[in-house]
Design a protein around this nucleic acid. Structure first.
Lengths: 226, 226
DNA sequence: CGCCGACTTGACATTAATCAAATGTAGTGG
DNA sequence: CCACTACATTTGATTAATGTCAAGTCGGCG
C-alpha cells in the first residue's frame, strides 16, 4: 500500500506526520456508496482493501463508469475543483478505505515538498489514465477495447504482486460494458469469442489470460488482421 | 487571462512573485507543435492567445484528440506524472503561450498556499472535464455528442466575454469528428441536419446557435423525442 | 482560370445495439 | 438435499446507427 499510495518515497519523519493526519479507516460494504455526486468534499480516500467503481450520471439519467479503483489507488481527486464530488464511488465488494482529510493534507504540503510532488504525480496520472480511456472510447473497436481492459487489469494486478494472468473480475459484465461504451451482450460475445480463439479461459468471473502477446497487440491496435 | 489562469485570487505581492517566474512568451504558428509526445517536461503553458488541440496516438497509429484549449487554459499537466509529455499539443491558429517553468512554480507552492490551492483546482477541473468527455464518448449518440460540443464551446466563449451564440470554429470538421469519436461525414451531416431543423446557422466555420435550449436539452440527454 | 484541400452528399456496408429467449448460478426455505 | 426464485449471463435473430466509399461542390489562392 505504501508503495502505491501517497507516502511513496517519504522519510520516516515525514511519514509519521502523514500518518498522524490520516483519519479513521472506514469499511464500505459491497454495493454501497463511499460518496455520492454532489456530496461536499472533505476527504480523499485511499483504497486499503477491495475494489470500487466511480460513475457519472447526466441529467438524462445516462450513466458512465469512469474508472475501477483497486488497493492503493486514490479516490476523490475530481472533487477538489468545486468542493463537491462529481461522481458516485461504489464498492464492488466489501472494501476498506482510509480517510484523508484534504485540508489537513494541504497543511502538510507547505513543509513536505516530497509529499506534494507525489500528490501532483498522482493527479497527473489520473489525467493521463483518463486520456487513455478517451482514446479507447473514441477510436477503438469493441474487441480492442475489451483487450485493452483485460491488459490494463493484468498490469495493475502485477504491480500489486498478484498474478497477471489469473484473476477474478470484481465487476459485472454490465459494469464492464458500461465502462467500455458497449452493451452487456457485446461483452458476453467477446468473452465467448476470445475463449473460442484460445486467448483466455473464463468461468463466471474467474479469468485466465492465455495469450498476452495477442491481447496486448489487439489493445495497442497493432494486431495483424485475421 | 488573469481571471482564468493561475493567478486567480492572489494578492498583489504574490502576483509579482508569480510574474517573476513566468518565462518568455512563445509564439506558436498555426499547425505547429507546442510540444510532442515524449518530449521532456519542463514547462506548463498558459494559452495567452489562440487555440490548441491536444492529441494522443497509440502504437497502432490511431489518434485521439483529447481536448481543445483556448485563452487562459493550461497545457501540459498530464506530463507531471512521468516528466514527459503524454500527448502532442498543436496550434489550431497562430497562437501565443506563456512558459511556466514547473520547478520554479513548485518552489512558490511552499510559501503561496493560495496559488497551490488554485493549481490543485485546475488539475482537478481537468480530471472532471475528461470525465465528462468519457460520458459523452461512452454513452451518448452522435447528435448528443455534437450538441454537447457546441454547448461547451458556447459556455467557454461566454466565460471569456465573447458571444455565446456567434463564433468561429477554429478546428476542422475532421478534428471535431476525431474528438467526438465520429467521422468527418457524420459531423457534416449533423451540421446540415441541425441547420435544417433551425438549431443553428453555419457558413464554413462560422457558427450561429439559434436554439440554445434545445441544444442544451440534447446535450443533457433530456430532449423530448422528436 | 484552374487547382487543391475542405467539406457535403448519396449509396451501401458494417458494427454493435436491441429484442427475445434460453441457460446458468446463487441463494432460500422446505 | 432439493425445488424454487431471482438475477446474471449467454446466445440468436434482427435492426438501427454510424462508418466507409465514392462522387460531387465550394471557397481560397496562386
Amino acid at each position: 500500500m505504501h508503495q502505491l499510495c501517497l507516502p511513496m518515497g517519504l522519510e520516516e519523519n515525514d511519514m509519521d506526520r502523514l500518518d498522524q493526519i490520516i483519519g479513521r479507516r472506514r469499511k464500505v460494504p459491497r454495493d454501497t456508496h463511499l460518496y455520492r455526486m454532489n456530496d461536499p468534499f472533505t476527504n480523499l480516500y485511499a483504497v486499503r482493501l477491495g475494489h470500487f467503481k466511480t460513475c457519472q450520471v447526466n441529467a438524462g439519467g445516462e450513466q458512465q463508469i469512469t474508472g475501477f479503483q483497486m488497493t492503493g489507488e486514490l479516490l476523490g481527486m475530481d472533487a477538489i475543483s468545486t468542493d463537491r464530488h462529481h461522481c458516485d464511488a461504489i464498492a464492488l465488494e466489501d472494501s476498506e478505505v482510509c480517510e484523508i482529510p484534504f485540508h489537513r493534507l494541504e497543511e502538510l504540503f507547505g513543509t513536505m515538498p516530497t509529499l506534494l510532488r507525489h500528490f501532483h504525480r498522482m493527479m497527473s496520472q489520473e489525467i493521463t489514465r483518463e486520456q487513455s480511456v478517451m482514446l479507447l472510447l473514441g477510436n477503438m473497436r469493441a474487441e480492442q477495447r475489451f483487450a485493452a481492459f483485460l491488459v490494463n487489469l493484468a498490469s495493475r494486478y502485477t504491480t500489486r504482486g498478484y498474478s497477471s494472468t489469473n484473476f477474478q473480475l470484481r465487476m459485472s459484465r454490465e459494469d464492464i460494458g458500461n465502462y467500455l461504451g458497449l452493451t452487456i451482450e457485446s461483452i458476453s460475445r467477446l468473452l465467448s469469442r476470445f475463449k473460442k480463439e484460445g486467448l483466455l479461459k473464463v468461468n463466471n468471473r474467474e479469468i485466465e489470460l492465455l495469450d498476452m502477446p495477442t491481447l496486448k497487440a489487439m489493445a495497442a491496435g497493432t494486431e495483424v488482421c485475421p
